[in-house]
Amino acid sequence: MASKISGGAVLRAAARIIVLLFFLFPIFWVFLMSFQTNQQILRIPPSIFFTPTLENYTALFSGRLQTASGSLDIAFIKNLLNSIILSSCSVLIALILGVPAAYAFARFKFRLGENIAFTLLSFRFAPPLLVLVPLVAYFQMIGLSDTYIGLIWVYQLICLPLILWIVRGYFEDISPDIEHAYRVDGHSWAKTFFKIAIPLARPGIAAAALLSFIFAWNNFVFALILASADKQPVTVGALAFVTSAGIQYGIIAAAIVLSVTPTLLLALYAQRYLVEGLSLGAVKG
C-alpha cells in the first residue's frame, strides 16, 4: 500500500512539474531573448547558452534604437507611463462608480434592475470595433480625441462592467443581517456602506480591481484608434519595433519583460486579497 501511495505521489508531482514547465517555459524563453541580439535569437538551432547583453534594455531606456538602416527614436518609457496612467485612473474611476452600483444591485430590488445590470455587462463582451466608429466621430466633435480623459472614459467599457458584476456577487454573499444590526443602532445607509459593507467585501473589491487593471493594461484596439503616439500605451507602442530593417525580437522581448513587471508586482502585492476574493462565495452553506 505504501509503495502504491508513493508511486501515485511521484506521478502527481511529475505531472505538476510538466504542467509548470509547459506554462513557464515561454516566459523563461522571452526573458532569455531580452538579453540576446537578433543574430543570437535567429540562429539555428537555438541555444540557451549565449553571451548576455544589455543593449535591448539600454535602447528602451535611452529611446534610441540602432538598426541596420540607422538609428530610430522609440518612446517606450513614455508608453509605459501612459499605460500606468490610463490603467490606474480607469480602475480608480471604475471603483468609485462601480462599487456603489454593485452594492445597489445586490441590496435593492427595483424594476428593470437585472436588465440594466446585464446591459452594462454586455458592453464588456461587445466587439471593440462595434463602438469605435461612432466614438471616433463623437470624440472629434467634443474635443476628446487623442486625450487621456477620452481614453480613460472609453476604458470604462472594460473596467466598469467587470467590477460591477464581480463585486455585486461578493456583496450578495455577505449576510444583510450584519448591516441591519448596524442600522438598528441609528447609523445611516452611507455609514453602513463605508463602515460595514466595503470592509467585508474588501477581498472581492481587490480581486476585481486587479483583474480590471490587467484587462485595461492589455487593451490594444482603443488606444490604437483613439490616440496618437504621445498618448499610446505599451501595447500599441511595441509596434515601433517592427521596422523596415526587420523585426527587433530582442527589443520586443525586453519590452515584454518591462511591461509585465508592474502587473506582476501588483499581483504579488495583492496576492492575499486575490486568493480570498476569488474563493469568496465558492462554498455555499
Rank of each mutant, 00 (worst) to 15 (best):
A207E: 01
L20Y: 14
W29E: 08
I152M: 08
I166F: 10
R107E: 02
K191C: 05
K109V: 03
T243G: 06
S3D: 11
I252W: 09
L54K: 11
K4N: 10
T37Q: 05
G250K: 05
I93F: 14
I84A: 14
P127D: 02
F110C: 02
G186E: 06
I116K: 07
Y57G: 05
I214F: 07
F139P: 02
L132E: 07
G150E: 04
F139L: 06
D146C: 05
F50A: 09
Q39C: 00
Q248L: 11
T51W: 10
D177E: 15
G143R: 10
H180P: 00
A240E: 14
K191E: 14
P26V: 07
F220N: 04
V275M: 10
L86G: 01
V275C: 03
A227E: 05
F194T: 13
F139M: 13
T53V: 12
T235K: 10
W153E: 00
D146G: 06
F222V: 12
G113Q: 05
V184F: 12
S88V: 14
S69W: 01
A94K: 03
P26M: 09
A209S: 13
D73I: 07
P199H: 04
V257D: 06
V131H: 00
R168P: 04
F50W: 14
G143I: 07
S122L: 15
T147A: 07
I77G: 00
W165L: 12
S212C: 02
V283N: 09
R107G: 02
A137F: 08
L112C: 08
Q39P: 00
I142W: 12
F123V: 10
K195H: 02
G237Y: 08
A59T: 05
Q156K: 07
L32N: 06
L211N: 11
F220W: 11
L92P: 02
I27V: 15
N79S: 14
G113W: 03
F49H: 11
L72W: 01
L20S: 12
A229T: 12
P46K: 13
I174E: 06
D173K: 09
G277D: 08
I256L: 14
F110M: 05
G8T: 04
G237F: 10
V167Y: 03
A208P: 02
I93S: 04
I152Q: 05
S228H: 04
L24G: 01
F50L: 10
A106P: 03
A270S: 15
L162E: 07
S62V: 05
R16F: 13
A117T: 03
I44M: 12
I96D: 01
F31K: 00
D73Q: 09
V242N: 12
L274Y: 13
L135W: 07
S175E: 13
A223V: 09
A238W: 03
A117P: 00
L54R: 08
